[in-house]
Amino acid sequence: MTITAETGPDTRAAAPLGRLLAAEVRWVFRRPRTLVTLGLFALIPVLIAIGVVVADRDGGGGLIGAVAGNGLVLPIAALTVALALLLPLAVAMAAADAIAGEAANGTLRGLLLAPVSRLRLVGVKAFGVLVVAAAAALAIAVVGVLAGMIVVGSADGGMVTLSGTTLGLGAGLARVALVTVWVVGQLAAVGAVALAVSSLTEHPLVVLASVLGGLIAFGVLSAIPALDWLQRWLLTSGWSAGADALRYPITLDAMGSSTLRALCYTAIGIGFTLWRMQRRDA
């Protein structure tokens, strides 16, 4: 104990951060539900691809309609579709397991008593949620590119933008990557807020319900014309910006402002989680 007193409480036997993070990621991916979710996400682009090919080319307008004969649009369309509800659901699930789930199992007490500062604990848990978000988005993007190129086929090996120009394969993939990164940013915001709810409760279901309920409420609010001024506050109002990556020249305004908004939501969620976890006993 004398040694501990000399080196200070925060540094005593502190596990290296890298090992903590690796342990959390292993822990997250050991849950069968995480793997099943990722597998289902990989199916989304495949289903859309089959649907587009079967429906021939008058499959209607919209982003899905733009996929016909233009496979590189598929990952972006699939990400946009999944961002509406499915991806936030996966992230909320991970966040629910991260704190509320551990509390329900009784394993949170051990973590809180372990010689790990609460700050690190929140950081590690947030990292776990972010990894799930990135893995889910990546699964859709990668399978989307493959399914798009193989099942749908691409226009001259490139991507036809909504503006009617043709991009090369490299530029097309770069745009897919941009949308993927942007989606992960939006999901980080959802995850941070979900983590904040998770730190308040010991029932994982509460987290799922509040995140999905919140998303639906945001959707309802944005559909009311009299509440136009509220739009700029809602996280979901920028979620159609992914289509901007398909324009020529590309316009980043909407993706930029929604990323800023997501950053603010992330700060609120993480800040609240930090504050709450300092006080939490179990």
Partner: peptide
């Protein structure tokens, strides 16, 4: 307590930023 305060600060900064 310090980290709790920092957490509060970050959350408030996020809200102001929003």
């Amino acid at each position: 307590r310090l980290w709790a305060r920092i957490g509060t600060g970050v959350a408030i900064a996020g809200a102001v930023g929003l």
